[in-house]
Amino acid sequence: MSPSETRPPETEGGPHVRHGGSWDLLGSEISVLFRRRRTWAMLVAVALIPILLAVAVRLSSSTLDPGEGPPFLDRVTQNGLFVGFTAMVVAIPLFLPLTIGVVAGDTIAGEAGLGTLRYLLVAPAGRVRLLLVKYAGAALFCLVATLTLTVSGALVGAALFPVGPVTLLSGDTISVTESLLRSLLVAAYVTVSLLGLAMIGLFISTLTDVPVGAMAATIVVSVIAQILDVIPQLDWLHPWLFSHYWLGFADLLRQPLDLGSFAHNAILQAGYLAVFGALAYSRFVTKDILS
């Protein structure tokens, strides 16, 4: 059942004309998402990661040897622009998936839990249209969360440490402007990395009317994927795990710029989008709404 692009016939009720279309619903979805205090709390927490990192490094008297602590941490004191990269490495395994799990797990199950799902559907939002809008909202959150981390990292890094040309992994040095561009590229990479998980969350969310269950299940899925990713006996499986390329943004910090893993990651995530999008579609359009 598609959100019928056809106009209903001109019935006795008078001509019905599509007015708002899907953009209205999307706008409303986004405004509801970002009006929730929970969303803001998560974004603040995300922004705090680089801030805490930077402050801890600033206050600490001992200097780190290269290679100690999370990647790039030893560089932070010399160049504040590394704060964002370090924070990204720290946040990717658990914290970002956690926030995505909350948002994506809440998409359908949250509406079902509140009971608003039935009112959206009799409005009628259209089940496919609602799924698409819900996913778009979750995807936007992925982008906003990673951008928050990047921007917060850049700001706190610039505030607490000197800023200058950035040394890439290959040992080459790039200008501040280019390093900011690469930071944005990293944010884009991480956003893309999280899209697969967001779709898995959307699918799980169609399975239940209990949002907390869907959130927890999504987070558990992301943790399990990462555990599987470090079991050597399963190395045949590793390239197919959605979390496998999460730290692959390191390739964006090499010279010459290597977009290969960006593309690889994007294709992998697209596969997850297709599979779990299809599952979410089939599940949701046949679901009996009993909440």
């Binding site: 007015h19 708002g20 009971g115």
Partner: peptide, 26 residues
Amino acid sequence: GPAFYPFLSGAANLRRLDTADPFAPR
């Protein structure tokens, strides 16, 4: 029974549900 977003005002709730109807003029 009625069901709404508790964190939104009454009017905001109605506006939200109204956007779900593709035939409701903005």
